[in-house]
């Protein structure tokens, strides 16, 4: 008996659908959460991270922007 026989008998097809639904739920949760109010400020701060990190001399003319 080969592995493929065992797997064939195990009827695993339903697991793929369960996984798909779980994935979808996680994804929808992320999307819903994003569009709810309440995280604006956090996200705006996060978005500025790349602009707040560069103290080197040749940095952008505006310099590092620490303003919030």
């Amino acid at each position: 008996m080969k592995l493929s026989d065992i797997m064939g008998f195990a009827n695993l097809a339903i697991y793929a659908e369960v996984a798909m639904v779980l994935f979808l739920l996680v994804f929808v949760a992320i999307a819903v959460r994003l569009w709810l109010p309440g995280s604006q400020q956090d996200l705006q701060e996060a978005a500025r991270l790349p602009l707040d990190d560069d103290p080197t001399p040749a940095a952008t003319p505006r310099g590092s922007t620490h303003g919030r």
Binding site: F27, I30, A31, L34, L43, P50, L51
Partner: peptide
Amino acid sequence: YFMPKAAEGPVFSYKLSILHFWSLVF
């Protein structure tokens, strides 16, 4: 990272970037 640097302003929508990430991964 580098586009906001070069444009000297934050990414247009951080929310969209989060969604962009998870959709691609999924």
